[in-house]
Design a binder for these strands. Structure first.
Length: 899
RNA sequence: GGACGCUUAGCUCAGAGGUAGAGCGCUACCUUCACACGGUAGAAGUCAUAGGUUCGAAUCCUAUAGCGUCCACCA
């Protein structure tokens, strides 16, 4: 028997899903859910919870539907993020990074990884994510190392990877190059300084506007627009770079925008992407003045050397001002690039880096989606994917940090590079190349962008580059669930790399979910303090409630505004279900394997089976089309609005009439007829009651079981718990294909019963008659036997509507329900005015609708063009409205008589 | 500057050619033996605006506005 209080904590920890997650079904159709590996650095935030919950729902659903599901977890080494984190921790404990060697730092990071890698895994278990933890992988485990080296070498040898000295985005805080994607543009308050550049051998000046005066030492030209008559006479002349004695030319280039600044722009090819291009066009020198740490280097006057770029900026301005070279300064808003990890302003720098020719790789990646081999859900995310891929630039994959996959390239003494999977192979090639045996090779110091290995995740996890059975079986049979924010970072790269490495798509479906925001729609951040911790929520409301809530709020293409109240709603629903099961237990509704839903006689039973079947079919359809919200809603409505609100209320009065000893009754539950046979003292009447009761009980148990089963993917803990209570061990998806209960006369009769009850209640409320007061009722029905109806459902009507069937009524009021007229006897002193008002109102509205429909039916064009069904529907509706108006009129008249 | 998304009840959101829906909140009543994390009955909406297509538009199309996001650029 279930405990009275629903307390998720009391049972959630008793369930573990590891065994079922690791179960393989070699004969079933394979299906893979590719879990985006979380960073080792972290703990799960609510966004992960959403992502993993949706995946888990898919995985569990597919398992129930008989698929062989591989749901494999892993962790991402998250190069820069992890290294920064560990460095910070070391720093906090008094260890400077500079004092550590590469090996020492790596040792520290591995140590930290070993100690904290479990955090995420444990959190996933709390959430009930059923991935196969026995197959957990890490993006830097031995297999991954081998695969990454293989991939790099293959791309290099196929001409997709090259090393080049090029301008890249450089993060001076971390001291590494980063890719374009890791750049975030941010608007900041800036200042535009107008600086006088004096012409060589002349007093004449040209004013140049700049936001970065500290790069003045790297200036190699001043550019003006060829059409700019203000400066035409200066072209070809030379100016002196302020604070130095270096002379640079004034050149003409269309890049100079006459409308911006002074129209004359300084050209600093070493520290600006546009200037670099101008420099190339005019074959200008490149003078680097800022180093890897953002400090000014030896190419600047001595007083500026080793100075931080921002300090130098102030100093330069100060000196310029002092020398009367500063014309003015203007406060402006400017958007400048920052590093997404470090948060510092980036510095374009020219360095040697490794690049992936993403443009070439993108071509098959684009067609895979264009040809429909890979689907985005919702589809509109394809646009974003195409847009980015169509203008993709070379992907800088080398990073000047230590934590990551080392670039598999070795250099000979003369700088000759050998790109091979191992030192031994590189040495082999070197020996061949140099024609001698003792060669000193040094490995490239850089590591690869984390996303390089992440991009290989779909096949690394299956054992690539080995030709494994898993690879053959699961690769490409995959659905991936993720947020749109990593379509570029991850999705696009997995497709590009997957196609190139294996010749096959890495996954079929990409489900893009929304982002989880706070209740105001703002991004959650520790800084703002609006973070919802999923583990906290699980503790407070239970993991199932969190899962259910996330799923039910996950409508396509929309972000989720999350707060505690939303989760409360989910928790309330589970409480309701819990109590429904308790109810069934208290009333002896036990699951009976021999129960045949097609064989039930009671219209009540048919009614709930009909609705349960529909709901479950709807859930299936919703899940097949990734409509987690709809699926959750269908379960909710069936449990609460059908089962609890109606069916259970219906059967209460029936189950509670005790015509026979409840103990005998219980023993008879399994097979009523046998039990009755043994007890031949029972009257026929009691036998019928007993059979009917058993029908209703079995149906309740059966419906609950089916609903608990479909809830399983969403809320596995409570589902397991309740199944245990019901006495069912195996989780399976309900097979309702054989259930053939249609919307027949019996089911319609119950719909009528519902409406009768609602109408009587409504009327009572309107007349301020207390619910407890029992009123006599009689009834007329057009197409059925009213006497039988009242006899069949008398107990229910008594209990749910507070009416007692009586043949003759003295003073009565009538209400109209679905073609039936119900007369209800009234006591003294009831104020009928309210009811009359209500009826008149209803009549008014009905008349309006009636006229509208009539207008349409009078329209020849409507009759000509509308589909036959629609016309029939309109006619039927018109009829029923007419009927109702007529009856309301009759009721209003009768009210007047009563008065 | 380019692209995408959103605008439906007080709030959060479903609905996608033919009766306007849910949850929360609100109002009134009910502590009835599954459940107050509950029950019953209610109130509440020119479906952002303007045009168009259609017999018929919240739903399709086109503009406009507001909000949001992404990409690009900015001496």
């Amino acid at each position: 028997m279930l405990e009275k209080n629903f307390d998720p904590k009391s049972f959630e920890q008793n369930f573990s899903f590891e065994i079922e997650a690791s179960l393989r079904k070699p004969k079933a159709e394979p299906f893979m859910v590719l879990l985006p590996p979380p960073n080792v650095t972290g703990s799960l935030h609510i966004g992960h919870s959403l992502c993993y919950t949706l995946q888990d729902i898919l995985a569990r659903y597919k398992r129930l539907r008989g698929y062989d599901v591989l749901f494999q977890p892993g962790l991402d080494h998250a190069g820069i993020a992890t290294q920064l984190l560990v460095e910070k921790r070391l720093y906090d404990s008094g260890v400077e990074k500079k004092s550590l060697s590469r090996e020492q730092l790596l040792k520290e990071i591995w140590l930290w990884k070993e100690n904290s890698g479990d955090v995420v895994v444990n959190q996933m278990k709390i959430l009930g994510i059923s991935c196969d933890f026995s197959r957990q992988r890490f993006t830097m485990d031995e297999g991954a190392k081998k695969a990454v080296a293989k991939m790099f070498v293959r791309l290099f040898k196929d001409g997709f990877i090259y090393r080049q000295k090029k301008m890249v985005n450089w993060d001076p805080f971390i001291g590494t190059a980063i890719s374009d994607l890791e750049v975030v543009e941010r608007e900041v308050d800036g200042r535009l300084w107008y600086v006088k550049y004096v012409l060589a051998n002349s007093d004449e000046c040209i004013t140049v506007a700049t936001t970065r005066p500290e790069t003045i030492f790297g200036d190699v030209a001043v550019a003006v627009n060829p059409d700019d008559c203000r400066y035409a006479h200066l072209i070809g002349k030379k100016v002196v770079v302020p604070l130095t004695d270096r002379k640079i030319p004034i050149i003409e280039d269309k890049y100079a925008d006459m409308a911006k600044g002074s129209g004359a722009v300084k050209i600093t090819p070493a520290h600006d992407f546009n200037d670099f291009l101008v420099g190339e066009r005019h074959k200008l020198d490149v003078i680097e003045v800022i180093d890897a740490r953002g400090e000014l280097n030896e190419n600047v006057p001595e007083i500026f050397q080793k100075m931080d770029r921002f300090a130098a900026r102030e100093k330069v301005v100060e000196l310029l001002d002092k020398m009367k070279l500063l014309v003015r300064a203007e406060d402006i808003k400017q958007t400048i690039p920052f590093g997404d990890r470090s948060g510092v302003a980036l510095e374009p720098r020219i360095t040697y880096q490794w690049f992936v020719d993403a443009e070439k790789l993108s071509i098959p990646a684009i067609s895979a989606v264009k040809d429909g081999k890979i689907r985005f859900i919702p589809k509109h995310w394809e646009n974003l994917y195409f847009e980015w891929l169509s203008k993709i630039r070379p992907w800088c994959v080398s990073r000047q940090i230590w934590w990551g996959h080392r670039v598999p390239a070795w250099y000979g003494p003369d700088g000759q590079v050998f790109v091979e999977e191992s030192y031994e192979e590189a040495m082999g090639k070197a020996v061949e190349f140099y024609g001698k045996n003792t060669i000193e090779l040094t490995q490239d110091a850089d590591v690869l962008d984390t996303w390089f290995s992440s991009g290989m995740w779909p096949f690394i996890t299956l054992g690539w580059p080995d030709k494994t059975d898993d690879m053959k079986r699961y690769y490409s049979k995959t659905t991936i669930v993720t947020g749109f924010d990593i379509i570029f970072f991850w999705i696009a790269r997995m497709i590009m790399m997957g196609l190139h490495a294996t010749g096959n798509i890495p996954f079929r479906d990409i489900y893009i979910h929304g982002l989880v925001r706070d209740e105001k729609g703002q991004k959650m951040s520790k800084y703002k303090g609006n973070v919802l911790d999923p583990v906290d929520l699980c503790n407070k409301y239970g993991a199932d409630a969190v899962r259910y809530t996330l799923a039910s709020m996950s409508s396509p293409g929309r972000n989720i505004k999350m707060n505690d109240r939303a989760v409360e709603n989910g928790r309330n629903f589970l409480t309701k279900l819990w109590n429904a099961v308790r109810f069934s237990q208290l009333h002896g509704c036990t699951s009976n394997k021999r129960f045949d839903p097609n064989a039930v006689n009671s219209p009540l039973a048919k009614w709930i089976i009909y609705h349960a079947k529909n709901a479950i079919t709807d859930v299936e359809q919703a899940l097949e089309s990734y409509r987690f919200d709809e699926a959750a809603r269908h379960i909710y409505r069936c449990v609460w609005n059908c089962l609890c609100d109606w069916y259970m209320e219906f059967i209460k009065p029936i189950l509670q009439t005790s015509h026979i000893n409840p103990n005998e009754e219980n023993s008879a539950t399994d097979d009523a007829a046998d039990a009755v046979g043994e007890n031949n003292k029972l009257r026929d009447y009691d036998i019928n009651i007993l059979l009917a009761k058993n029908d209703l009980r079995n149906t309740a148990a059966w419906v609950i079981l089916q609903l608990v089963r479909v809830l399983y993917p969403f809320c596995p803990f409570i589902s397991k718990k309740l199944m245990g209570e019901i006495g069912v061990v195996d989780t399976e998806w309900p097979d309702l294909s054989g259930v053939n209960i249609s919307f027949d006369q019996d089911v319609k009769e119950i719909e009528l019963l519902k409406n009768v009850i609602t109408s009587i209640r409504s009327m009572k409320q309107c007349l301020r008659i207390s619910v407890g007061e029992k009123l006599p009722v009689s009834m007329e029905m057009t197409n059925a036997d009213a006497g039988k109806f009242l006899a069949d459902y008398g107990d229910i009507l008594y209990r749910m509507a507070g009416v007692v069937a009586e043949e003759r009524l003295m003073q009565s009021i009538s209400i109209v329900v679905d073609g039936a007229v119900i007369r209800i006897g009234l006591g003294e002193g009831v104020d009928l005015l309210q009811e009359k008002k209500r009826l008149c109102n209803e009549k008014l509205k009905l008349t309006e609708t009636h006229d509208e429909i009539l207008l349409r039916l009078d329209n020849s064009e409507f009759l000509e063009k509308a589909s036959e069904n629609v016309i029939i529907e309109h006619k039927e509706r018109l009829e029923s409205i007419r009927d109702r108006i007529q009856k309301i009129d009759y009721v209003i008249q009768s009210l007047e008589i009563v008065e």
